[in-house]
Structure formats: structure tokens, C-alpha cells
């Protein structure tokens, strides 16, 4: 029996469910020498604003128990340079490109989406309404139901590309945000972005990050992320979910798929092991064989809740 790793994420066809997470894989081309980008389900590129941004001064990351904090501040080349300088190379590599976009205003999100609608080689738009460490935009929208609705519907009006809002975990009831995104026209949602967090150097009594606060990622957040995927699946079973948060191995990815994710993103793990992709594919294939499951889609949301209570 050969198993089928391909998945359909709200109209977006992927050869495998493994996607490089935004901000953890540059613009993808940085990895072109060591990873065959066409073997990834997709590449979510570093978050893009309309204009170039310098980001925060160093120090931008700090390691924490089984995780890390980052406050990069969305340094980036802006959407126009991305389309001109990076997209052709990504097309040549055969990469499926999710463009992660961020705006300070609803109008900026829509403007970026318009530019991308005319570009060749964009598979989908991931709406970053969840970046925790910029002063305007990002999580400002994603932590209000109104803001989520406004950004998603504004972008929906200007693009026919699959639209995937990326949700923040820094809210009480993430499922209500998934529902709001769906009702505003999202084709799928991705979650989670990083958890707002902080670390202090006790010798100097100063924050370890120049931005004072940053986003926590890595294995430390995985159980919370799994719970959030589960909640979104329960609240909106018709809405495809891309799950992420601390996935290091195929076992971790399978956990998210069982909870209800149709695809998963790999962020921090990629820093630890840039060659993780083939191991993920092999591990998942092996699991499907062992459990006699013919395809990834047949595994999605197969959580057995007959034992124990679920929320």
C-alpha cells in the first residue's frame, strides 16, 4: 500500500502537509542549497509589509527552557522587492509559496494583497494578524474580533487567492477568532503564532531582549498549541486548520493532525535541524502504514474522545 501525503487546505493543494513557518525560513531561497524546496508542502516566507523595515536592534532572540523568545520586529524587504527579487527564484525551485503579510492598517493589508494578486507564483496569502512584537499592526488586529473581521474581509475583497489568517494564541478564546475569520471569508486558518513572553537578566536587571518582550516558540508551547487546534476544530469543523507550535518530529506533527490540523508548519525546529524535512515525511509515511491509514486527510481530526472529558 502506498500512502497519500497530499492535502487540500481550503483549495490549496499541497504534496505534503509540511510547511516552513514564516520568519523561520527566510525567504526560502536561503535554504535552496541544502533543501529541495519543491519537496516541502509549502514555504511561508518571512512576514512582509508594504515597505522595507529594519526591525528591532539586537539582541533579538534569547533561549528559554525548551524554547526561545524572539523580537525580530519584522525586518523585511517589502512586498515589491519580494515580488521582483525573490519570487522568480522561488518559482524556479518549484516552491509552493505562502506569502505572509502584515500591515499597520487594514488598507495596507489590502494594498499588499492587490500587489500579490498580480504576481506570478503566489499560492496563497497568510495574513499575519498575530505578530506579538510590533507596535502597530499584527496582533493589534488579531486580538480583537472586530479587527480580525475587518482585515480578513478587506483582503477578501481584493484577492481570489486562498486566504489564511494566522491567529494569535494571546487571547482567551482562540476558537471565536477562527469562526470570525471564517465568517469574514477566510479559506483556512493557521495557528499558533508565538506567545507574548519576557526574560530578564537578573545580574543587570535588564530585559534580555532589546524590545523588552518577545514571542515564545518551540517545544515549550506545543501542548498549548495542540489544545488550541483542538478547540478551533470543535468550533469550526468545516474550516481547514494549519497547526503549529513546537513541532520537532513527525510524532509531534501527527499529534496536531489528529487534533484537527490538515497541514502543519515547522518553525523553530528548522533552526535546530534544517534537514528535518525528509525525516518528517518518512516518519509520517511510516505511521500511516503502521496504522493502516491510507492518507493524511483520513487522519485529520481523528481524535478519539470516548475516553475522558473534552471541553
Amino acid at each position: 500500500m502506498s500512502v497519500d501525503l497530499s492535502v487540500d487546505v481550503g483549495g490549496l493543494q499541497l504534496a505534503t502537509p509540511f510547511i516552513a513557518a514564516s520568519g523561520c525560513f527566510g525567504y526560502g531561497l536561503e535554504y535552496g542549497d541544502i533543501v529541495d524546496l519543491s519537496t516541502l508542502g509549502a514555504v511561508a516566507v518571512k512576514g512582509l509589509f508594504l515597505e522595507e523595515r529594519e526591525g528591532h536592534p539586537p539582541t533579538r532572540i534569547v533561549e528559554t527552557p525548551s524554547g526561545m523568545l524572539n523580537a525580530i520586529g519584522l525586518q523585511g524587504i517589502g512586498v515589491r522587492r519580494f515580488v521582483a527579487d525573490k519570487l522568480p527564484g522561488l518559482r524556479d525551485c518549484g516552491a509552493v509559496v505562502l506569502v505572509n503579510i502584515c500591515g499597520s492598517t487594514t488598507e495596507e493589508y489590502a494594498e499588499i494583497a492587490r500587489i500579490l494578486a498580480d504576481a506570478d507564483g503566489v499560492a496563497a496569502i497568510e495574513l499575519n494578524i498575530s505578530c506579538p512584537n510590533i507596535s502597530k499592526g499584527g496582533m493589534m488586529f488579531g486580538s480583537s474580533l472586530r479587527g480580525t473581521h475587518d482585515v480578513v474581509s478587506a483582503v477578501r475583497r481584493v484577492t481570489t487567492l486562498p486566504l489564511i489568517p494566522k491567529l494569535t494564541p494571546n487571547v482567551t478564546d482562540v476558537a471565536s477568532f477562527a469562526v470570525a475569520a471564517r465568517d469574514a471569508g477566510a479559506d483556512a486558518v493557521s495557528l499558533v503564532n508565538t506567545f507574548l513572553a519576557m526574560a530578564i537578566d537578573i545580574e543587570t536587571r535588564r530585559p534580555k531582549l532589546s524590545n523588552v518582550v518577545g514571542g515564545l516558540s518551540g517545544p515549550a508551547i506545543r501542548p498549548i498549541a495542540v489544545r488550541m487546534v483542538h478547540e478551533c476544530r470543535q468550533a469550526a469543523a468545516d474550516l481547514p486548520i494549519i497547526g503549529m507550535g513546537g513541532i520537532m518530529t513527525s510524532e509531534d506533527a501527527i499529534e496536531f493532525i489528529i487534533a484537527g490540523a490538515v497541514a502543519v508548519q515547522i518553525g523553530t525546529a528548522n533552526f535546530v535541524d534544517p534537514f528535518v524535512w525528509s525525516k518528517l515525511r518518512e516518519g509520517l509515511t511510516d505511521y500511516l502504514h503502521r496504522h493502516d491509514v491510507p492518507s493524511v486527510s483520513a487522519l485529520v481530526g481523528t481524535l478519539d474522545t470516548t475516553r475522558g472529558h473534552t471541553a
Binding site: G23, Y31, K46, G55, P58, V62, I72, N270
Partner: peptide
């Protein structure tokens, strides 16, 4: 010697002005 996340250009943490 900047604090570095990945070494491959993926994370933008080791930047120098």
C-alpha cells in the same frame, strides 16, 4: 559573535548594524 538562531539566514536574529 552575535547571538545566532540558525546560522543559515532563516531567522534574522544575528543582525549587525
Amino acid at each position: 559573535e552575535q547571538v545566532m538562531g540558525c546560522g543559515l539566514g532563516g531567522c534574522y536574529s544575528c543582525v549587525v548594524p
